[in-house]
Lab assay of single mutants.
Amino acid sequence: MAAGGDHGSPDSYRSPLASRYASPEMCFVFSDRYKFRTWRQLWLWLAEAEQTLGLPITDEQIQEMKSNLENIDFKMAAEEEKRLRHDVMAHVHTFGHCCPKAAGIIHLGATSCYVGDNTDLIILRNALDLLLPKLARVISRLADFAKERASLPTLGFTHFQPAQLTTVGKRCCLWIQDLCMDLQNLKRVRDDLRFRGVKGTTGTQASFLQLFEGDDHKVEQLDKMVTEKAGFKRAFIITGQTYTRKVDIEVLSVLASLGASVHKICTDIRLLANLKEMEEPFEKQQIGSSAMPYKRNPMRSERCCSLARHLMTLVMDPLQTASVQWFERTLDDSANRRICLAEAFLTADTILNTLQNISEGLVVYPKVIERRIRQELPFMATENIIMAMVKAGGSRQDCHEKIRVLSQQAASVVKQEGGDNDLIERIQVDAYFSPIHSQLDHLLDPSSFTGRASQQVQRFLEEEVYPLLKPYESVMKVKAELCL
């Protein structure tokens, strides 16, 4: 049975990233139509530049190519590739079939990587351009969430054990800070992308030097003109047959890092959902379990974690691919890159769409948070109580021993009897502590235990987050809708 299948058929496997999760716009960027249309555009740009620099290419040939950029006979191309065992030459023939007058000058002087690699770089750039505003929107939604809850005390956790208090907004800023680093890295790697350009079979530009009869300047002009037509500021000066596969490492490393950030955020949300302090959106008709109707599973956060793990592992592909590119190139890269580049971007696209949807509907339960604080705060307040007693004339050592005994009794009630923490009640009825009984409410005010959390939130948002989001103001209103 021949390899390949009808990918629109229910009898043929289709990647869930495309069929179930990723956005239509990201799927289109990695589609065959987008790819092969870009090949034709690159052939047109090459012909236009070659004509401008004096090669015998007519206006009629150029116009014929322009008129057929979208006229792609995919069936013919597939048949040609089956016959020739070469995808680029299959599309040269297919393009030439609908451009008979231009057929002889299509791909003039070029090698397969002229269309293959340059198209990949265009796709990487455009895919990054799709991700950047999506990530900015996630940051914006979380920034709104953090600002609104900047002063809401909550129990902090280290080692997932109760620690000092923080605020809900401050905790959210930990998430935002990681995503801001990801946004900066995505922008950097996007701006650092260079075009492969017009380089020939081993990167020496020998074929173009021959076409222009040894004119170095025209060869350099050709490279520059096509690079500018493709919208790049610069091209690699040095290439082998391909652009260095280190570029793929750079791009997928940034995406993998984004995956790590999203995994951490969504894990926190899942843990908070278990504590009943916070939940992701839950639709009115949504079913959490087929057997347990009360369940409210954090399905979206779980999906993000599941896909983020996949995204983090994909960076190993370009690392290994770059390491086995012998001399000017081997074909070890080809099949692998067809999979890992598309999957990385479709996965990143999915987790950003999902995280935006989550961040637009996060639900906080202040009463649950308050109750958990009441359970733990008495123990945390013991040092403040000791200091207040010393100020009232008591002995630190005597007070410490009193607190120690009462704390152990209260802990026994919590752990052995399943009761509430009654340390404060014990202190309130103990005559030894009568000098500070009137101060206990103040000493137990949760806001006095959150330090500068709310001020940190305000400063972080104003100095770091809002300036970073400013270039994306025009796209901030787009909502994230999930079908599944």
Rank of each mutant, 00 (worst) to 15 (best):
K66L: 05
L179P: 07
K415N: 07
L222E: 00
S434Y: 14
V413S: 12
F208R: 02
H97V: 15
R426M: 07
I386V: 12
S289H: 00
M299A: 13
K101N: 01
M476E: 15
M476C: 11
L121C: 14
S323W: 00
M316R: 06
K402E: 06
K470V: 13
E360T: 13
L355C: 12
E25C: 06
H437D: 12
G96K: 05
V413T: 13
K295C: 00
A431E: 14
L108P: 03
K477S: 14
A335G: 11
T167F: 02
A348W: 00
F74T: 07
Q416T: 08
T354I: 13
Q375V: 08
L440M: 10
T242W: 07
T313F: 03
T321E: 01
M76A: 10
Y243P: 15
S151N: 13
N71S: 07
L311R: 03
D268M: 06
E481T: 15
F36T: 11
V262S: 11
A136K: 08
S67F: 05
F212Y: 08
I339K: 10
S253V: 10
D430Y: 04
T204E: 02
V262E: 07
E220S: 09
I122S: 03
P133W: 11
R309N: 06
C305D: 05
A110H: 02
T244M: 08
L55N: 11
L468D: 07
E401S: 09
E64H: 07
W45C: 04
L179G: 03
L142K: 09
W43E: 14
D349E: 08
K134R: 09
S334D: 04
A230S: 02
Q439L: 12
T242D: 08
N274W: 04
I386C: 10
N68S: 06
L406V: 10
E70G: 08
S31C: 08
D59F: 06
H442G: 10
T313M: 10
G4N: 13
V414S: 09
W326S: 06
R20T: 04
F160R: 03
H217Q: 07
L444D: 05
V168S: 06
A410N: 06
I269R: 01
V315I: 08
T111I: 00
W43M: 03
L271Q: 05
P162C: 10
T242E: 12
W39S: 08
A273L: 08
K229P: 01
K391G: 12
T227M: 06
S140K: 08
S301Q: 03
W39D: 15
H400A: 06
L53N: 06
T94C: 05
S301F: 07
L42K: 03
P10Y: 13
L186S: 12
P153C: 11
V413Y: 08
P281W: 00
L331K: 02
L179F: 08
H107V: 02
C27G: 11
V115F: 01
I351Y: 00
V475C: 10
K264C: 05
S323V: 04
S474K: 05
T158M: 04
F236R: 06
Q375S: 14
Q51R: 11
A291V: 02
G240C: 02
L271P: 01
K101C: 07
D216I: 05
Y472H: 13
Q41S: 12
Q177H: 11
A273G: 08
K470R: 13
R245F: 00
A392S: 08
T321F: 04
L135K: 13
A342T: 12
A102V: 12
L53Q: 12
W326M: 15
H86W: 02
A136I: 15
L131Y: 03
T347F: 06
R374E: 04
I287P: 00
G394T: 06
S412D: 03
D87N: 14
E401R: 14
P133A: 15
D398V: 13
V368H: 03
L272R: 01
L135D: 02
Q455T: 10
T313W: 07
Q416R: 10
E50S: 10
D333W: 00
M299H: 08
H159S: 01
A235E: 11
V226C: 11
D178I: 05
D182K: 04
D73S: 10
P293A: 12
R245V: 01
V138K: 05
H310I: 07
H93T: 11
N357P: 03
Y34K: 09
D6V: 10
Q409V: 10
G240Q: 05
G8T: 15
N357G: 12
E464G: 14
L255M: 11
S359A: 08
F449S: 06
E463N: 15
E463S: 11
F30I: 00
R188S: 12
S334W: 02
A78S: 09
A453G: 11
N336H: 02
C305L: 03
R14W: 15
V219C: 06
R37Q: 15
E417D: 13
I403V: 07
Q51N: 07
L222I: 03
A308E: 02
P467Y: 07
D420I: 10
R374C: 04
G394H: 01
P366I: 02
Y472M: 03
V189N: 15
E376G: 02
E25L: 12
A102L: 09
L311I: 06
I287Y: 00
I427S: 04
R396K: 13
G4E: 13
L183S: 13
L53Y: 05
V363W: 11
L108M: 11
L69F: 07
H159K: 01
S434A: 13
I176V: 13
L209R: 11
I105S: 10
G116M: 05
Q285T: 12
Y13P: 14
T382P: 05
C113G: 13
F208C: 11
D144L: 14
E425F: 10
K295Y: 01
V247A: 10
E213V: 09
L53T: 03
V115E: 08
D422Y: 12
I351K: 00
R374S: 06
I139G: 04
V465R: 04
L423D: 06
A22G: 11
L55H: 07
K391Y: 12
D182A: 05
A256R: 00
D430W: 06
K229V: 02
F327C: 06
K246F: 02
I72W: 10
T244L: 06
R303K: 10
N384K: 06
Q286A: 03
T166A: 04
M65T: 04
R337Y: 04
S454E: 15
D87E: 14
T154D: 13
L186C: 13
W45F: 09
G361W: 00
P435E: 11
Y21I: 00
V465K: 13
R196E: 09
R396W: 02
L255A: 07
E473R: 14
L152F: 01
E220D: 15
R196M: 09
E81Y: 06
L423T: 03
T239S: 10
Q325G: 13
L252I: 10
I176R: 03
F36G: 10
S9C: 12
V414G: 03
D182V: 02
G109C: 00
K170E: 04
A143C: 02
L131R: 02
T154Y: 05
A78L: 14
D32Y: 09
L355K: 00
T167I: 03
M26C: 13
F282Y: 15
F460P: 02
N274T: 14
T154S: 07
M26I: 14
Q456V: 10
P10N: 12
R33P: 09
D178N: 14
F236Q: 06
Q221I: 08
D398A: 12
K101T: 07
P298W: 00
H7N: 13
D398F: 11
G169Y: 03
S19A: 14
L444Y: 05
C340I: 14
T166S: 08
Y114V: 04
P298T: 08
S261I: 03
L142F: 11
V413R: 14
S289T: 00
I57G: 02
Q356C: 14
M312F: 00
I385L: 13
F327Q: 08
L183H: 15
C483P: 15
C98D: 12
M89Q: 03
Q241E: 13
D87F: 07
V478E: 15
D332T: 00
T239V: 03
K170R: 13
C99G: 06
P446L: 03
